[in-house]
């Protein structure tokens, strides 16, 4: 049995999901030889330390750690003072300066801890530096959950499609936009009406600009460009058009001619824009689904689809990244 001691930084929606999934999958992980022990949880209010393992029910009902924290250590101090092998970084994302996640990741990697994250910001802002730090310290940096949520994309390319040259990737990487466009096409709702509905259902934030103006998708495009295509790009290098100018009439016109309109991110072209997708295409998925078409030289085009967000779904991608670090390292070692 391999014991993996995990520190969790960030205790929002995804952080709660990670705590829950680690608890739920404890037995299954044991069966594949991994003893995943969560030894600390840190958020902006403090730290909850549990050297023998966090008992999920002790903290899951608390929205933040305020009231349950038993230490006022910040993340950096936690990494330096307790025995942990791996850091799960799930603080809120900032695509401009990457903080606070960027600092957490730099600290963790520098101290020789593996990092698994769903936080796009640091990878968009400073991917090269993080990857170099991981290599120098002989640890892994895993971020499947940052692109397409639970939909396997990065691991699919790095492991299953290894040997293929990836010619390009096109996809729907934002569930909020896809929901809005789907509802506008189906119900002939004006944009604002569809947005309000998405907000009421919790699919869109009160300030939806990050999603609907294509910023979120552009961040994912930058991560794919840096990680899969070995480019060195930032958010500003991506040409972005959002969905705010789309009208229900244009969707009807497109539908009559056999097309859906989807917000498509593309690498290595570095574009995010609404595009006409044939209704029969595997990319023409509806509701909050994400989808990605991977164009390869040997395998042709491979399309994956899945839920792009959600508490448990994102935690699932994080769990699979954790497991991948400790299983079949030889494949990853060649790529890092």
């Amino acid at each position: 049995m391999t014991e993996v001691r995990i520190s969790l930084v960030g205790y929002g929606v995804v952080g709660h999901g990670v705590v829950e999934v680690l608890e739920r999958k404890r037995q299954l992980m044991g069966e594949i030889g991994l003893d995943l022990t969560l030894v600390s949880v840190t958020d902006h209010t403090g730290t909850y330390l549990a050297p023998d393992g966090v008992v999920a029910k002790d903290i899951l009902d608390h929205r933040t750690l305020e009231g349950v924290a038993n230490s006022d250590m910040a993340a950096r101090e936690v990494f330096g003072s307790i025995d942990c092998d791996l850091v799960v970084e799930v603080t809120p994302t900032n695509i401009v300066h990457g903080q606070p996640g960027l600092g957490h990741m730099v600290d963790a990697l520098s101290m020789g801890k593996h990092v698994v994250t769903s936080n796009k910001g640091p990878l968009v802002v400073d991917y090269r530096r993080l990857k170099d730090l991981a290599r120098k310290n002989d640890v892994a940096l895993k971020f499947e959950a940052t692109v397409g949520g639970t939909m396997p994309l990065i691991s699919l390319i790095e492991r299953t499609l290894v040997g293929n040259t990836i010619l390009g990737i096109r996809g729907i990487f934002n569930g909020t936009c896809n929901y809005i466009l789907t509802r506008m096409a189906e119900e002939k709702y004006p944009y604002n009406h569809a947005l309000t509905e998405a907000q009421e259902l919790g699919y869109a934030e009160a300030d939806p600009s990050y999603d609907v103006e294509g910023v979120d998708t552009a961040g994912k495009v930058a991560i794919l460009a840096n990680s899969i295509f070995d480019m060195d790009v930032k958010y500003g290098d991506v040409e972005v058009t959002g969905i705010t100018g789309i009208t229900p009439e244009s969707l009807i016109l497109a539908h009559k001619r056999g097309y859906a309109v989807k917000l498509i991110g593309e690498v290595p072209a570095l574009t995010v824009k609404p595009m006409l997708v044939p209704l029969g295409s595997p990319l023409a998925v509806g509701s909050t689904l994400n989808a990605a078409a991977i164009y390869t030289d040997l395998s042709g085009t491979i399309t994956v689809t899945g839920l792009g967000a959600g508490r448990i779904e994102t935690a699932s991608a994080i769990l699979s990244d954790i497991v991948s670090i400790y299983r079949g390292n030889h494949v990853d070692a060649q790529r890092s």
Partner: peptide, 12 residues
């Protein structure tokens, strides 16, 4: 004007 182009026109 917003131009929406077809995805299949220019596959990578």
């Amino acid at each position: 004007l917003l131009v929406i182009e077809p995805i299949e026109a220019d596959e990578p």
